[in-house]
Computed example of a mutant assay.
Amino acid sequence: MKINLSSFNKVFGETIVRNIKTSDLENYQAKRKASGYSNSYIDQEIGAARSVVYKAFDDAMVSEDTVRAFKKVKKLLKSNANTRKKVLYIEEFKRLMEALPPHTRAVVAMGYYTGMRKGEIINLTWDKVDLKDRMIKLDAADTKDREAREVPICDALYNILKDIPKAIHDNHVFLFKGKPVNDFRTALRTACRAVGIPYGRGTKDGFVFHDTRHCFNTNMRKSGVPESVVMNITGHSTREMFLRYDTVDAKDIKKAVNQMEGFLESVDQTVDQVPIKAKKCP
């Protein structure tokens, strides 16, 4: 989400910013909240302004007191409170794929089977795709965290990619009417509604494209793939971020209870089979 600091600038001019207090920022948070803005958006506003202030401090334009005011102000949104948990089961994913138009179907499949970010997918070019070795090789400049990584291509995705015709005039993998695919929300929304899948961030259990990243992480974990391997594929630099994209659902919980029950039964049987030694008479 792009943050516009015009409202912040109207309240805090350059002169006032130099003398700003934490209480001033807290009052700003309260006013924005009363105006109907979400906690997440307000936090991002303060965060964007904080970055500007830190830069100004580096350039000796503001004092440590200004920086301290921004450090002390607390976020309105609790940690991980906005973490999304929507994951499509394979049956839902297959229904969705059938309802999507071809160009969007390939993009969604790429997200579901690789966990790649939207930007990494729509900007993907054929020179980064090795169908023979079944590997997508991203350079540092292609990724959000600016670290090169390799993403494996599974059979299902391979079958989709090999059927995509390569354009002479454009090297992008995903094209629509001769131009790189960019905004496909309308197609995704229409397909979701057609197959009965809630759509949108503001909808309960609503699905959005970024959730394909959750799907990939969760499916890999359920498949027994080690966390370190999944993190290497998806480009998660910390375990905390990895866990945000790994959703524990009702099936996981039931499986956990069944595993515990099986363990307890095995222990009970082992105990029953251990012979009890007779005590010697005194």
Score class of each variant (00 low, 15 high):
Ile3Pro: 01
Asn4Ser: 13
Leu5Lys: 04
Ser7Arg: 12
Asn9Lys: 13
Phe12Tyr: 07
Thr15Arg: 13
Thr15Asp: 14
Asn19Asp: 11
Asn19Pro: 00
Asn27Met: 11
Asn27Glu: 13
Lys33Thr: 14
Asn39Val: 04
Asp43Leu: 01
Gln44Asp: 05
Val53Ser: 03
Tyr54Ser: 02
Lys55Cys: 08
Val62Pro: 00
Ala69Asn: 01
Ala69Glu: 03
Lys71Asp: 09
Lys71Asn: 15
Lys72Arg: 14
Lys78Val: 06
Asn80Ile: 00
Lys85Ile: 04
Lys86Trp: 04
Leu88Ala: 04
Tyr89Trp: 02
Ile90Asp: 15
Glu91Cys: 09
Lys94Val: 02
Lys94Arg: 10
Met97Ile: 13
Glu98Ser: 08
Ala99Arg: 02
Pro102Lys: 07
Ala106Gly: 05
Val107Ile: 13
Val107Asp: 08
Val107Ala: 07
Val108Gln: 00
Tyr113Trp: 00
Arg117Lys: 14
Arg117Cys: 00
Gly119Cys: 04
Gly119Arg: 11
Ile122Asp: 03
Val129Thr: 01
Leu131Gln: 10
Lys132Trp: 07
Asp133Tyr: 08
Ile136His: 08
Lys144Gln: 06
Glu147Phe: 02
Ile153Leu: 05
Cys154Glu: 10
Tyr158Asp: 12
Lys166Cys: 11
Asn171Arg: 14
His172Ser: 09
His172Phe: 05
Leu175Ile: 00
Arg185Gln: 09
Ala187Lys: 01
Thr190Trp: 05
Ala191Asn: 06
Arg193Gln: 13
Val195Ile: 05
Gly196His: 09
Gly196Ser: 04
Pro198Trp: 01
Tyr199Ile: 13
Gly200Gln: 05
Asp205Trp: 00
Phe209Asp: 01
His210Lys: 03
His214Asp: 09
Phe216Leu: 03
Met220Cys: 10
Ser223Gln: 11
Gly224Val: 01
Pro226Asp: 10
Ser228Cys: 03
Met231Asn: 02
Asn232Arg: 12
Gly235Tyr: 07
Thr238Met: 04
Arg239Tyr: 13
Glu240Tyr: 08
Leu243Ile: 03
Thr247His: 01
Asp249Arg: 10
Ile253Glu: 14
Ala256Ile: 00
Glu261Asn: 12
Thr270Ala: 11
Thr270Pro: 01
Val271Gly: 00
Gln273Leu: 12
Gln273Met: 08
Ile276Val: 15
Ala278Pro: 03
